[in-house]
């Protein structure tokens, strides 16, 4: 009985390794255009996307967008990421895609610095490399597909909060990781923009809750308690945005304390509806996936991207040829009126 089980296991492993080996060879060939032996291989570039981590709604929505776009544009969309936002695990997946010889490789790097040499390695292997969602500026990436400009996010967040607060008052920010570069640069814009455009408003404090929504909620509660004159809160990431709104709801301060944040539509819907959140600022994540797939087809075909490219189904895309940044457009503002239109 036991011997039999081991035999089965060994056979399974052998079969798996054959499949893997076959995969490597087949896709290796695809770089020169005869993948899988199927007729359509010649004009079907393989585009691989490695997110920071797999299994969170944000990247799953990007994946959905990428898959759909590839179906329409004619490309093969591959998607795999680490189960935790870990740079080493992500590097392993990137290596496996280099080995497979995909045509275009998109990465949203967890650690841009350690990812740079790997991207060089991919480029050396003849793969078009690019970043999306998060950039690796000091790398050989040909394009960075950006969801929104730093100014766009920071200013829209401030404008939305100020509109709810009536253009003045004291507010605090519940951020997440202390070293998250994108969050910190948004906060920097919020500080400058608030100071220059809303002289009667003031940012009193910035606290860091990590990615934990109960911590974010408790910190927002503490902020409201320590400063009764506080009339606004910002949740700087997808766990803090519903967190600060929940704190306002629990404290019975809906209408007294306004909140905005960067939250996904489904998680913000209940708070936008009862008024504990005034608005959520994000970008259309599925469209970001679509744009990523589109950029992949351009890279695979070796096409130049124009300053205001014509992307099917997405309006307002711009391309900065100097920095090779493809920008999705203005941020998306979610309110009680439009939040129902999105499902992620």
């Amino acid at each position: 009985m036991r011997a039999h089980r081991y035999t089965t296991l060994a056979a399974g492993l052998a079969a798996a390794s054959l499949v893997l080996a076959g995969c490597g060879e087949g896709s290796g060939g695809s770089a020169t255009g005869d993948s899988g032996g199927e007729g359509g291989g010649d004009d079907q570039p393989t585009i691989a996307f490695v997110p920071k981590l797999q299994g969170i709604p944000y990247f799953e929505a990007m994946n959905t967008g990428g898959e759909q776009a590839c179906e329409e544009l004619g490309c093969e969309w591959l998607y795999q990421g680490p189960v935790e936002a870990d740079a080493a695990a992500q590097a392993d997946i990137v290596r496996s895609y280099i080995q497979q010889g995909v045509d275009v490789l998109f990465v949203a790097p967890n650690d841009p610095d350690s990812m740079a040499p790997l991207l060089q390695q991919a480029a050396d292997a003849g793969i078009a490399v690019a970043t999306t969602d998060t950039d690796a500026p000091d790398s050989v990436r040909e394009v960075f597909v950006s969801q929104a400009s730093t100014e766009g996010i920071g200013q829209t967040l401030t404008d939305e909060l100020m509109q709810a607060m009536g253009g003045s008052g004291r507010y605090a920010i519940v951020s997440c990781g202390e070293t998250a570069e994108n969050l910190n640069s948004w906060i920097e814009v919020q500080r400058e923009y608030t100071q220059s455009e809303y002289p009667d408003a003031e940012i009193t404090d910035v606290v860091y809750a990590g990615e934990d929504q109960t911590v974010a909620t408790q910190m927002a509660t503490d902020l409201m308690n320590s400063d009764p004159s506080l009339t606004g809160l910002v949740g700087e990431c997808t766990s803090s945005a519903p967190g600060v709104a929940q704190a306002v709801r629990d404290a019975g301060k809906i209408g007294q304390v306004q909140t905005v944040g960067l939250g996904t539509p489904n998680s913000m819907a209940p708070y936008l509806e009862d008024g504990s959140a005034a608005a959520s600022v994000l970008w259309d994540v599925e469209a970001l996936g679509e744009l990523t797939a589109w950029a992949g087809t351009q890279l695979a075909a070796g096409e130049e991207i124009s300053a205001s490219p014509d992307v099917p189904g997405i309006e307002g895309v711009t391309y900065d040829a100097e920095n090779n940044v493809l920008l999705l457009g203005d941020p998306l503002v979610l309110t009680a009126d439009n939040v129902g239109e999105y499902d992620y």
Binding site: I56, T217, Q218, S239, P242, A245, Q246, N266, S267
Partner: peptide, 13 residues
């Protein structure tokens, strides 16, 4: 208790 202190959405972390 964790659910009660959280928000109306629950993430895998």
């Amino acid at each position: 208790f964790v659910l009660a202190q959280g928000t109306s959405s629950l993430a895998a972390n």
